[in-house]
């Protein structure tokens, strides 16, 4: 899912434009598995899969594999449809320097939700 972010995001010109001021590395944690997402001007350059030793990242978004599975459904259930809905439930954690995340929140939310396109069959 996460490994396919480059194709899911980079093919969406409007989304890339929305993230044009975002150049950074952030972490998505799916249960025990960590991913580092490298972004340059809204394009996903690379997704690395951990484990990592002494790697730096700007901010991290962490939830269990079960929660992400529910989040990435084509039509998620109420409460599992947005990262702030998960925050409200206490099922997700944000840490690190949150300023770039908050300054680009529409973009970051769309990137994190992009794997739903796989469930929806919009990307093969």
């Amino acid at each position: 899912m996460i490994e396919r972010l480059p194709e899911l995001v980079n093919g969406d010109a409007a989304l890339v434009r929305r993230g044009r001021y975002f150049t950074d590395v952030f972490m998505i944690e799916v249960g025990d598995v960590q991913y580092l997402v490298h972004v340059r001007q809204g394009r996903i350059e690379e997704v690395e899969r951990g484990p990592f030793v002494m790697r730096s990242w700007r901010f991290a978004v962490r939830a269990s594999a079960d929660i992400w599975d529910r989040f990435w459904q084509k039509l998620p259930d109420p409460g599992y449809h947005d990262i702030f809905a998960l925050l409200h439930k206490g099922e997700i954690a944000f840490d690190g320097d949150l300023q770039p995340m908050m300054a680009n929140l529409l973009y970051v939310k769309a990137v994190i939700a992009a794997p739903r396109m796989l469930a929806a069959g919009k990307a093969s």
Partner: peptide
């Protein structure tokens, strides 16, 4: 000042709209 107010207010409430 280091976060665009219009963008972030919209982004905060974007999940308060149903997926459908």
């Amino acid at each position: 000042p280091d976060v665009h107010g219009g963008e972030v207010c919209a982004a905060i409430v974007s999940g308060l709209i149903a997926p459908q």
